[in-house]
Design a protein around this nucleic acid. Structure first.
Lengths: 229, 229
DNA sequence: GGAATAGTGTCTTTCAGACACTATCTG
DNA sequence: CAGATAGTGTCTGAAAGACACTATTCC
């Protein structure tokens, strides 16, 4: 029986990654997505590779990040986006793609292979033509999923200030708001934002004092950490 | 290069289905899930099978419904739940499971192979022991996804009265509410429910008259159809 | 004091949740 | 009429959106 199972043709299974980060530019924080040049079919595409023998998706993600992107992140949390199964999507062979998104803080991406492409307000990659295969659909799914996570959910239940961990705590409400604005591509009122987030943040204390940011000008801001995680 | 790609070992890819329906019992409508007996490993499990050469997930779903469940539904809309990739999850071979949920109106399921098992308020299968493999996780994902679709979303935007199409239009607000209560496993106020749903329903008209249900006792109810779809 | 940024008081609107009422059918 | 089910008027409370104000720092 087990021998039988191996007789049938099997698809190659690839893991393709929509790698997202938020970085600081002259215009403030910007959401960006890693795109690489490929040469099998020539063009721009997301990093990815086939799952190797008896490996898991998580191990494959680690492998892609290490070998194809050239970075050494710690534990990452890939999120399943879609499965692409059109038998003709890859000319070379029968390949199924299990598309995931991965969010990383920008410092982890230093020296990464590829370009960090900005994202438009509508959730598309800025400039240039389409990506290879069905990778534009992966990008769209990654961005809409990300924005959903950063949008304000029903009621106040279980708001996570920075679900994807782009920011390293502690941070100020201002920094957190700029992050949200970069992710969702829209502006937020600082007062309403503060009220929404504060129940899920606690001020950093030292010797019974609230720690303030020693920024530049203006009144110093309170530093916060997320309550959970 | 293409020849190279075929040299590496590939996983078997299975599609496992959480098949859900809502049926009428003495206690009113009930959400149920199809469980089958298996004999390779002996036990209770969800229907599923390997993807055959150059087939898609959708084709495999159709095949499972036809050959393993023994029904002939029209176009179904499988929803991706999770990918199970533990290399040891199946003793027999390296197999990755792409778990989907499928919702069907009960009449389509007449003569289906297996048992329609009721679901508890907490979203577990009623009675008996665990399912084979990781199928209990698939069940949990299917039910929580389903309930999310039937829960009231943010604002009034894009409410679909019966997202999974369990009910055949036209139906009364009462019938629609019983469906929702069966799906989410909780009671709803008829007045608030009516106000939420009415913007997304239109009364059935015949000769300029609103068509009413010719039920049993009491005041006849207006029959509605969903505005879109 | 002035500039700059941090943070809050409060009004309005929207809408879910809840209660109580009215409406329309059958027997 | 009573009984049963359909459907609505309206109050309350939670919370988002918006505006304007106060608070604290550096120069």
């Amino acid at each position: 029986m087990a021998a039988d199972l191996e007789r049938f043709p099997r698809p190659g299974v690839t893991v393709d990654l929509a790698l997202m980060t938020v970085l600081e530019t002259d215009d403030g924080l910007e959401l960006r997505l890693l795109v690489q040049e490929r040469h099998d079919p020539t063009g721009r595409a997301l990093p990815g590779r086939f799952i190797r023998e008896r490996q898991t998706v998580a191990e494959t993600v680690d492998g892609v990040l290490r070998d194809k992107v050239g970075i050494q992140p710690g534990a990452v949390e890939p999120r399943l986006l879609r499965v692409f199964d059109d038998p003709d999507r890859d000319d070379r062979t029968w390949a199924i793609s299990v598309a995931h998104s991965v969010s990383l803080p920008h410092p982890v991406l230093t020296g990464a292979v590829g370009h960090l492409v900005p994202v438009t307000q509508r959730g598309r990659l800025k400039g240039q033509g389409p990506l290879l295969f069905d990778h534009d659909e992966i990008v769209a799914a990654a961005i809409s999923g990300l924005r959903e996570r950063y949008e304000i959910r029903q009621r106040y239940v279980d708001v996570r200030p920075d679900p994807d961990g782009f920011l390293k705590p502690p941070y100020t409400l201002h920094q957190l708001r700029l992050l949200h604005e970069a992710v969702i591509g829209d502006e937020l009122h600082k007062d309403n934002f503060a009220r929404r987030m504060k129940p899920f943040l606690r001020p950093v204390m030292r010797r019974g004092q609230v720690v303030k940011s020693s920024d530049t000008v203006g009144r110093p801001a309170t530093l916060y950490r997320p309550i959970k995680g």
